[in-house]
Write a protein that binds this DNA or RNA. Structure first.
Length: 340
DNA sequence: GTAATTTGACCCAT
DNA sequence: ATGGGTCAAATTAC
């Protein structure tokens, strides 16, 4: 009975993670708030900071109201690329305005920024092209900038930044790096391939060693000044981790980051009741990594998503409908794949 | 040959 | 002046 409840809890979390990473265009702030309860510390919508308790996973979704300020050159490029947004972008350029406090005065051209902390920074199912890397002041490791590979062909606006956290788990003996991934804007592209992935492992760790990270309203609101990467700082300071590893249902179509194998972690349910559930990372091996556990992902290579999925990414719903999630959590799929 | 990555320079906001 | 984000030529990988 308890195990059943825990499995259901994890299914809910996976679904919520999916909603977080691939929000539907029709998602309303109120819906997002309700869907993410228990996942996020805070949600900033239109400049208002909502505190959610208790914090489960360190995932902060920010819907900024002001849009990102751009220079005249960038504005012109966007007029070309994003004809649908020409009026809003032109307004941006014409305004050339000073920053708006908490995005309270500008509401057009909303950008959605989702930040999560993960051990597997490339599990989101999209292909990304790296276009820059920057050493951030105070950060131990450089931040990498990626845009969707469909940005040129289809004008997809999705971007993400990946930065290895300073406080990685070296002290825990695991040696697994932890990355902060900030997703900026939503995908407007349509992925060519649509292979539904099978989730090998989905692990959620909630550490109890420190009180729930309370993100100051001021710092969260600051992200609304433009939805820039600075908004990820609250999540970076947390110890909560989301880690997921994806694979594909069709053998041979699995795309791992070049020269990398990713991390595999077998989830173990440790707690009894639904409110105090917890999981534990345990390294596992699969056919994908030939029995060699790579403790740390090489971030110098290209970031590619393990699988190609459609932009609307309804595969999770399919998985839920087909009961594959339960199989996944029972380890049957992992066992099957491991035996291949 | 094509695609992706690297990396110094540049732009812009603060 | 400084820091973050992006560009684009050069380089590398497939």
């Amino acid at each position: 009975m308890e195990a059943c409840m825990m499995l259901r809890r994890e299914s809910e979390l996976v679904a919520e993670l999916h909603h977080l990473l691939f929000p539907s265009p029709t998602t309303t702030p109120s819906l997002a708030t309700s869907k993410l309860t228990g996942l996020c510390d805070t949600i900033t919508v239109g400049g208002e900071c909502l505190q959610l308790q208790p914090p489960g996973l360190t995932t902060t979704t920010t819907v900024s109201g002001g849009g990102r300020r751009r220079g005249r050159k960038r504005v012109r490029e966007y007029v070309k690329l994003l004809q649908a947004d020409d009026q809003e972008v032109a307004a941006d350029g014409a305004a050339n305005a000073k920053p708006l406090p908490c995005g309270k005065t500008r509401r057009k051209q909303q950008t959605t920024t989702s930040t999560l902390v993960t051990r597997v920074p490339d599990f989101d199912g999209y292909r990304w092209r790296k276009y820059g890397q920057k050493q951030i002041e105070g950060a131990k490791y450089p931040r990498s900038y990626y845009r969707c590979t469909n940005s040129t062909e289809q004008g997809c606006r999705a971007k993400k930044t990946v930065q290895r956290n300073d406080h990685d788990d070296d002290t825990n003996g695991g040696g697994a790096a932890v990355y902060t991934v900030a997703y900026i804007s939503e995908h407007t592209c349509k992925s060519i391939e649509s292979v539904a992935p099978v989730i090998l492992e989905t692990t959620v760790v909630r550490t109890n060693q420190q009180p729930p990270a309370v993100v100051a309203a001021g710092s969260s609101c600051a992200s609304s000044t433009g939805g820039n990467a600075k908004s990820e700082s609250p999540a970076t300071s947390s110890s909560d981790i989301i880690a997921s590893t994806w694979s594909s249902t069709s053998s041979g179509d699995v795309r791992w980051p070049s020269d990398q194998h990713g991390d595999y972690w077998r989830h173990q349910l440790l707690a009894g009741d639904e409110d105090s559930w917890d999981t534990k990372y345990t390294p596992v091996t699969t056919s994908a990594n030939s029995g060699v556990l790579i403790g740390e992902m090489d971030m110098t290579g290209p970031i590619r998503s393990p699988v190609q999925i459609t932009a609307d990414a309804n595969w999770m719903d399919d998985l839920l409908l087909n009961g594959l999630i339960d199989d996944m959590f029972n380890g049957s799929i992992v066992s099957q794949l491991s035996g291949l």
